[in-house]
Amino acid sequence: MRTTISEQEFEELNAYLDGTLSRAEVDIIERRLAQDPLLQEELESLEKTISLLRMSERVAVPRNFTLDPEKYRQSAGNSLFDFLGRSWYAGMATAGAFVVAAVFAVALFQAAGLPDQSLVSESVEVAPFAAEAEEEAQSDEVAAAPTTATSQRGPDEEAGGDVADFADDAAEEAPADGAGPELSEPAAQPEGEAVNSTQTVGERATTPAAPWSSLLIAAGVAGGLVMLIGVAGLVFGAKQSA
């Protein structure tokens, strides 16, 4: 004959006494109780234990635990910073910090030169020089025409200067007979580049760069504000609690 019951059986007896078993489970345990004296004995001792514990009497409170209205009125939930719960302020501070960090990260990547953004920043830098390049190209064109003529006259008759030198080099490389139009090419080339780059620069500098910068600044400012409100709420809440 066994002398103890298992933990599982004891748990079932507890559930039986606490009335948390289903009708079917009650039937099963009652059948087992009828056949098992040890289980019956354990049930009785458990019942007595619970009854004894329920004999615990309430002890009178030694004093009232009410709060002093004068002392606690200020920390009640009606101030500006109690308008939202602490968890809201914590969320705002976190979200704001995240936005600020994201904006900062994007700005850093921009500064470091991400492929797309580098084009934009390069364009922005180049833009002020576009007019200058155009001017140079125009002067090249002007210089190129006489140079061609000069080269046709011969290298010794050339005037000094960079453009003239360049035309001279080109003339040396070019075949002697059809030199005219081809000689003008090197001089004309910068013009074409300058015009093209001016157009590209103009488009890139004005279209994508400005809205992105504005958006970044706006997001950064908004994130910073939200973070500040969140932190302020937490700090004031903590002060009130203290």
Binding site: V59, A60, N64, F65, L67, D68, P69, R73, A76, G77
Partner: peptide, 23 residues
Amino acid sequence: AAQQGDVNAYNALVLHYQSLAFN
């Protein structure tokens, strides 16, 4: 009311639960 800062309302709750809490 207590959430709105009414300490007296909160004290009414305290008086109701203080015996249970203390025991």
